[in-house]
Design a protein around this nucleic acid. Structure first.
Lengths: 344, 344
DNA sequence: TGTTAGCACTCGTTTCGTAAGAGTGCTAAC
DNA sequence: GTTAGCACTCTTACGAAACGAGTGCTAACA
């Protein structure tokens, strides 16, 4: 059977209506709702076809139809095609007070959640390929050394290193110079064994400390990778009756609180190149997480530069307002791109 | 009417039973449950008295009784008296990886939530009276200065300061020395106008920068005060049927997510001196937050030193296991106290 | 006088059957 | 190919009845 013009129109009408109401939609509704001027009986026939083709399903006999995952998919795909250019900008609250990446990301998540009424999540950029911009050691007291690590994009990490014996101001100064001359401009992958050897040699009796410091750096740079994810609007999911059921909501909220799963989800996404910030839509079973199998997830990628990127995701009911979500995401992506490119 | 021995025993039996089951408890249950060897009829008479006195209520005629807020209060008070000494230590996972306060607090909240099966929240210590331990300026690039501020208790803050013109290594070094000699060991309140004037004079042509830096310090130290609160186990509240209702849960979860209200709640608590880490229990309407009026909240205070303290709170159903909660809290408090006293 | 057995009564909960309503599928007519 | 009509299905709402848990009261008992 073929999906002709009319069937498509009816399908879209069904989906649109369902997006609004959340109720199964019947033939009579469509008969009036569209400008096709067809009777409900005709619609019924077409609907039977659409069901056979798998685009819609009946929750039970004698209920209206609701879109299947396949139906949503078709709708989303056709919509994404249309949504190429038209992107109006979100309010520019983002730039205010955004000198810490963390704050920026939190604000972005919040803004997006407030804007869409869904749940949002956003990950910090992947660090692996960030370059070291500055390394600063300071003696806090006799037994503690503070390492401040500044990465490209003004990402600041702190790490306390415990000393077995005091170093003295001069040594700290020397180490600072040594470390900065050797490491500045490199990313984690570029700090290799030969380099480390060379540094240890130069540090002489302090080679142990150098080891400790390098450990601290790699820890500081990578340790938080599994918690650098911010969510907002978690309670929004309770607004949608189809998700507002203890079991489902509980699982989802738990996932949102724990973040571990989210991270795997986000990490698992490919860095999709592309026109539209790699916007991807997962519907129902397509979703990588069990707890989201009654939801839809829309993700996008923002990028800072080659190989440095982060993800933004929106979680909502399957009947989410895809159009709005995509537009909002694109707008946010553009802004983030802009911000990251500005101050560097 | 007087609350004699027997009435008290019956009341406690009612509360204990209700804590376990969450169901209204009837006279027959008590008659068997206790070792009083009284018939259900006698119990009924006593229960009628207890109800008249306001310690228990009937959700509806011909249902068992449940404790009123007043009943819980009595129970909690009498329990707190008993719980003076016996505190066994919680697992000492806390010390691991705890070189950042944030991590420590998050872990504490998590641990406590996992331990009690309730929702927990914990605030960072109040900063106002923390002393400056170290101040470190570094030039990130020509237009940006990084200020790292280390406060007592190894609390590290970063702040980027934008420069109108480059300073040069030497100047930065000078400023570093100036700032540290002037400010080290002081707390925010002690940085007063005369001192600032003196510093500006010494800094000569860079007095503007000094201003900016001082601003940055006071910002960095105080800005996050309203978000430094960590929660864990939010979804635990869904485990208790009496809270598992969309309206109630939604309000609570929202409060937990937004944190603003929590902060006000925690901030509003007096710094209660005392034996038991100032453990306070709020039951039902006593709770300062509307969204928690069907809950009980137990809070405690940990202290770092005179005037520097933070709060921990546990939120659960009114029928929470107060005994366990109090014990867990005390144990955690002891640990936190210990940790803060150790490394200084 | 305090305790207890017994009983009528209340009220929430469960169960069941019925009725209403929405929507379908099929058939026959246009 | 389209439509009107109708029988059928299935969910939901509603109410009555049965049930059960628990109470309050009274009268009897130690």
């Amino acid at each position: 059977m073929e999906l002709d013009e009319r069937k498509l129109k009816i399908l879209k009408a069904i989906i649109c209506n369902y997006l609004e109401t959340g109720e199964p939609v019947g033939s009579r509704t469509i008969s009036k709702y569209t400008d096709l001027n067809l009777s409900s009986a005709t619609i019924r026939n077409e609907m039977a076809d659409l069901e056979e083709m798998g685009y819609i399903v009946q929750p039970h006999t004698s209920a209206g139809r609701i879109p299947s995952d396949k139906g949503y998919r078709l709708y989303v795909d056709s919509m994404l095609k249309e949504k190429d250019a038209e992107v109006e900008s979100m309010k520019e609250i983002l730039l205010e007070k955004a000198d810490r990446l963390e704050t920026l990301l939190k604000q972005a998540a919040k803004l997006l959640a407030a804007n869409t009424n869904y749940t949002t999540m956003i990950t910090g950029p992947q660090y692996q390929s960030r370059k070291l911009k500055l390394l600063q050691l300071s003696e806090v007291d006799e037994t503690q050394l503070l390492a401040v690590i500044v990465l490209e994009g003004n990402l600041i990490k702190n790490k306390i290193i415990r000393l077995s014996e005091p170093l003295g101001k001069e040594t700290v100064l020397k180490l600072n110079i040594l470390l900065n001359t050797c490491l500045q401009g490199l990313n984690l992958a570029e700090i290799n064994l030969p380099l480390i050897q060379k540094m240890k040699e130069e540090a002489r009796e302090y080679s142990m400390v150098v080891s400790d410091i390098l450990d601290a750096i790699s820890q500081a740079v990578s340790e938080d990778d599994d918690v650098e994810i911010f969510t907002s609007g978690a309670t929004n999911i309770l607004k949608y009756p189809e998700l507002n059921d203890t079991e489902k909501a509980s699982g989802l909220l738990y996932a949102l609180e724990e973040k571990q799963q989210l991270n795997e989800l986000m990490a698992g996404l490919p860095e999709k190149e592309g026109e539209q910030h790699g916007i991807q839509v997962f519907i129902g079973e397509e979703t990588p997480l069990e707890s989201m199998k009654d939801c839809a997830v829309v993700t996008a990628t923002y990028r800072i530069e080659e190989g440095v990127y982060g993800k933004v995701g929106i979680i909502g009911p399957k009947r989410m307002d895809y159009e709005k979500v995509v537009t909002s995401l694109q707008s946010l992506m553009n802004q983030l791109d802009g911000i990251f490119k500005k101050p560097g």
